[in-house]
Nucleic acid binder design. Structure first.
Lengths: 253, 253
DNA sequence: CAAGCGTTTCCGCTGGGCGGAAGCCGCGGT
DNA sequence: ACCGCGGCTTCCGCCCAGCGGAAACGCTTG
């Protein structure tokens, strides 16, 4: 019996093996991987074995499988995200020191924000996001900033699609969302109280490259109280710094 | 004619495609990839195309190829390096603020140190390392710390192998290296003036998990002058903090 | 000690993938 | 404008890498 649809490339199977690892699965058994990826165990076993030989996966002493550092190493190398991170990091540190709460850097990936860096303190407010974690664009302040400056096509697609509510405060009405985006473009900042968690407020500003195009969002997550707005100037200042730092070092003219 | 050895798995070809990207190659053409990976252009074209469809590679407007964020995302997720980084980051930030120079976190990968995090200031000393960059274990302070606590087998293998000199000060004599390692174990710190670059001094201390095993090295790179030793206490203090932060949150008992 | 589960190994059949060649596009030279 | 060149993609027929059923292995549990 065929466990998976026939007529499929090896590569897609490999991709599915990696996608079997959810954000919370640090280690998986071969059978578990096979089940999630929809592969025959024998196939999974063979592929996992080869991936281990290449260092893309590694095995625990108990034979369980986890993602190997080699994979991370290759991915980190030429990733465009890295140079952005490199430029933003010093300013993020300063911002983090001043604000004292979660400070994060996100880019738009599809209709979601992908967070590529996060600085946090143990005693800071709750934060659902994590590094290499995602959040729908319309619920996070970073997402709203990125969406506000995204191609109109993508904006419409998000406005049309279902808008999940994380809390009662999440904007789920297309009309209101449209207004919010316009306001973000006008004011240059997204200020969201309790969109993703009642207790937190997210504030995000755009980061622009040399051409003025918005390439990322810089944000902080602070306690949801009336003082939250106070952080906006610091955030804007940091954003200016990052954008300036990115301008000279453009890879290609 | 066969450009590559026949009888080879698709996977190894894919791996070679990714390895075609050196640390400095942000974007490559298909032909370039094919040449470096030893593949037929047609093969490279087909595989690249499929990898792009899966988001592991992405194409510039000019059809050149770079590594996709999806790859980084998957790699970051379950990587054991991430939880280490998460625990170390707050302390690294403090250390960085106090020392004011490059602060880095490295793990042992084979006979080399792989740097998984680095904080730096633009005005700091030269630093050859980079995030996701490697350095032979015997030339960097981090490497010496990690090597000093590595399995004897690995130590002997490094001591036996060729020991490249980066500067005249790099330790390349097996006997002296053996003594250095013993000293690192005794004093709990590796102090290296001008091993990798004449102008810089590296200082590294071990990070231990709950079982007391050395899992990483925390290091700073400062100007190579007589004040360098002054940083040691701050470094040791930070290391204690990180080790403590790692102990409670052990994934599996 | 058997039953159950997870994992690896074996092997014969087959379709995914290889690579030669042709075709397409954009560039620079005459 | 024409041609040649280099990079890239597409096509297609042959063939071996890889699939998956099955069996064997090893560990835990009742």
């Amino acid at each position: 019996m065929r466990t998976s649809a026939a007529g499929e490339s090896v590569l897609s199977r490999v991709v599915r093996i990696f996608e079997a690892f959810g954000p919370d699965d640090r280690a998986l058994g071969v059978t578990q991987i096979a089940r999630r990826a929809g592969l025959h165990v024998a196939t999974a076993s063979r592929l996992v074995d080869e991936l281990v030989r290449h260092g893309w996966l590694r095995r625990d002493p108990d034979r369980r499988v986890r993602i190997g550092v080699r994979m991370w190493e290759l991915a980190s190398r030429a990733s465009p995200a890295l140079s952005l991170r490199e430029a933003a990091m010093p300013y993020m540190e300063d911002l983090h020191a001043v604000v004292g709460h979660h400070t994060q850097l996100g880019v738009l990936e599809g209709r979601e924000v992908l967070f590529i860096e996060r600085l946090s303190s143990p005693e800071a407010v709750v934060n659902l996001t994590r590094i290499a974690g995602r959040l729908p664009a319309h619920v996070s302040s970073s997402g709203l900033v990125l969406l506000a400056h995204a191609p109109r096509e993508l904006q419409e697609s998000v406005l049309a699609g279902p808008l999940a509510a994380y809390t009662p405060h999440t904007v789920t009405d297309p009309g209101r969302l449209r207004a919010v985006l316009a306001d973000v473009r006008r004011s240059g900042v997204a200020f969201c109280r309790g969109y993703v968690d009642e207790r937190a407020a997210g504030i995000a500003v755009p980061l622009r490259d040399a051409d003025g195009a918005v390439v990322a969002a810089l944000s902080v997550v602070v306690p949801n109280d009336d003082n939250a707005r106070m952080q906006i100037p610091a955030l804007k200042a940091a954003a200016r710094g990052v954008s300036r730092a990115m301008s000279p070092g453009m890879p290609r003219p």
